[in-house]
Lab assay of single mutants.
Amino acid sequence: GATAVSEWTEYKTADGKTYYYNNRTEESTWEKPQELK
């Protein structure tokens, strides 16, 4: 299949934890999204 550009962006909180934000759905998660595995 075609490689889609991930909708997920990786961010870090002030205390250094990583989370992921989906630009399309406006969803955020602590877990690494399936698309990034």
Rank of each mutant, 00 (worst) to 15 (best):
residue 31 E to H: 07
residue 10 E to D: 02
residue 10 E to V: 11
residue 16 G to H: 03
residue 19 Y to Q: 03
residue 36 L to M: 10
residue 35 E to Y: 06
residue 30 W to S: 09
residue 20 Y to F: 07
residue 18 T to P: 05
residue 33 P to I: 02
residue 20 Y to S: 00
residue 21 Y to V: 10
residue 12 K to T: 12
residue 31 E to A: 06
residue 8 W to M: 00
residue 9 T to K: 11
residue 36 L to G: 06
residue 1 G to K: 07
residue 27 E to K: 07
residue 14 A to Q: 10
residue 2 A to K: 07
residue 10 E to A: 09
residue 34 Q to W: 14
residue 16 G to F: 01
residue 1 G to M: 14
residue 34 Q to S: 13
residue 15 D to V: 02
residue 29 T to M: 08
residue 4 A to S: 13
residue 24 R to Y: 11
residue 33 P to Q: 03
residue 2 A to Q: 14
residue 3 T to N: 14
residue 33 P to Y: 03
residue 5 V to M: 13
residue 9 T to L: 09
residue 5 V to Y: 13
residue 8 W to Q: 01
residue 12 K to G: 02
residue 5 V to G: 12
residue 8 W to E: 00
residue 28 S to I: 15
residue 34 Q to N: 14
residue 6 S to W: 09
residue 6 S to L: 10
residue 35 E to T: 06
residue 33 P to R: 01
residue 7 E to S: 05
residue 14 A to T: 12
residue 14 A to V: 11
residue 32 K to M: 12
residue 4 A to P: 14
residue 10 E to H: 03
residue 25 T to K: 03
residue 2 A to C: 15
residue 11 Y to K: 14
residue 27 E to S: 05
residue 1 G to S: 13
residue 5 V to N: 11
residue 11 Y to P: 00
residue 27 E to V: 08
residue 7 E to W: 07
residue 34 Q to P: 15
residue 37 K to Y: 15
residue 23 N to Q: 12
residue 22 N to Q: 01
residue 31 E to P: 02
residue 29 T to A: 07
residue 9 T to Q: 12
residue 14 A to D: 08
residue 37 K to T: 14
residue 17 K to W: 05
residue 12 K to D: 02
residue 35 E to Q: 09
residue 25 T to R: 02
residue 8 W to V: 01
residue 16 G to W: 01
residue 16 G to I: 00
residue 35 E to L: 04
residue 13 T to V: 03
residue 9 T to P: 00
residue 3 T to P: 13
residue 17 K to T: 09
residue 37 K to L: 15
residue 7 E to Q: 07
residue 23 N to G: 06
residue 12 K to E: 05
residue 12 K to L: 10
residue 27 E to G: 03
residue 19 Y to V: 08
residue 25 T to G: 01
residue 3 T to Q: 14
residue 15 D to A: 07
residue 36 L to D: 08
residue 23 N to I: 13
residue 8 W to Y: 02
residue 10 E to F: 04
residue 29 T to S: 11
residue 37 K to M: 15
residue 21 Y to L: 03
residue 19 Y to C: 15
residue 2 A to D: 12
residue 7 E to T: 06
residue 5 V to P: 12
residue 31 E to G: 04
residue 7 E to M: 06
residue 18 T to H: 06
residue 16 G to V: 00
residue 4 A to L: 12
residue 19 Y to H: 04
residue 4 A to K: 07
residue 8 W to P: 00
residue 13 T to H: 03
residue 18 T to K: 06
residue 10 E to N: 02
residue 10 E to R: 03
residue 20 Y to H: 01
residue 7 E to K: 04
residue 8 W to D: 00
residue 36 L to V: 06
residue 30 W to I: 07
residue 11 Y to G: 04
residue 15 D to T: 08
residue 14 A to M: 08
residue 3 T to Y: 05
residue 29 T to F: 06
residue 9 T to Y: 08
residue 31 E to R: 04
residue 36 L to W: 10
residue 28 S to Y: 15
